[in-house]
């Protein structure tokens, strides 16, 4: 069975002011100072810092799931960026467009994952199209789509577990970043402009 990726409705959400105050170095609680010692830690940490005890357990979890692992970075960024685009998360889509470029994806691939080009036209490798279909199915959550996507995703159980947790964790972050309207950092915006993204 081949991995045809049907078009999905990739929603776009407007930017805007964050719905919370982002904690800065002067306001960071005593347990969090290390995260602010090298400058702006980014809006995820700056928002979590409102509840200091959440930072300690959350960051290692996110690092383990989203960070470097035995799954190649390119593969992980396909998952994160595609999931974020399908979920309509402006913050994560913009941030991970840059990370994806830095992980070896080209601009056309990034555009395809963002829903701006047909995935089938840009991704020639069968396994990558199957991976995109898996992201779409898991993110949208319909059992029939998940069953169909699993049939064409040729990976063992260990890989399936990690890729699926990656989709699920990305969905969690998508909801978080969208609900709080986390702002895209200036350096990401500048890079996206330079890349015409």
């Amino acid at each position: 069975m081949s991995a045809a990726v049907p078009p999905v409705d990739v929603p776009t959400r407007p930017g805007g002011a964050p719905r919370i105050t982002l904690i800065d170095a002067a306001s960071a609680g005593l347990l969090l100072r290390q995260h602010f010692s090298s400058g702006d830690p980014g809006p995820v940490i700056a928002s979590l810092a409102h509840v200091p005890e959440l930072v300690g357990p959350t960051l290692p979890f996110l690092g383990a799931v989203l960070g470097p692992s035995w799954i190649p970075a390119r593969e992980k960024e396909i998952v994160i960026l595609r999931t974020s685009a399908v979920m309509g998360c402006r913050y994560c889509t913009e941030a991970h467009s840059v990370v994806a470029l830095d992980s070896g994806l080209n601009v056309r691939e990034v555009r395809a994952l963002r829903g701006e080009l047909p995935v089938g036209d840009v991704f020639t490798a069968e396994e990558e199209r199957a991976l995109v279909a898996w992201c779409d199915a898991v993110a949208q959550g319909a059992e029939a789509d998940i069953r169909q996507a699993r049939q064409v995703l040729d990976v063992d159980d260990a890989r399936l577990v990690e890729l699926t947790l990656l989709v699920a964790t990305t969905v969690m972050l998508n909801r978080y970043a969208t609900a709080l309207a986390l702002p895209t950092s200036l350096d990401v915006r500048e890079r996206l402009l330079r890349e015409d993204l």
């Binding site: 105050t21 904690i23 002067a26 306001s27 960071a28 609680g29 005593l30 347990l31 810092a49 409102h50 509840v51 200091p52 005890e53």
Partner: peptide, 12 residues
């Protein structure tokens, strides 16, 4: 009018 959080340990 805003709570200072620099000496905050936990919300819990």
């Amino acid at each position: 009018g805003v709570l200072d959080t620099d000496l905050l340990l936990t919300r819990t």
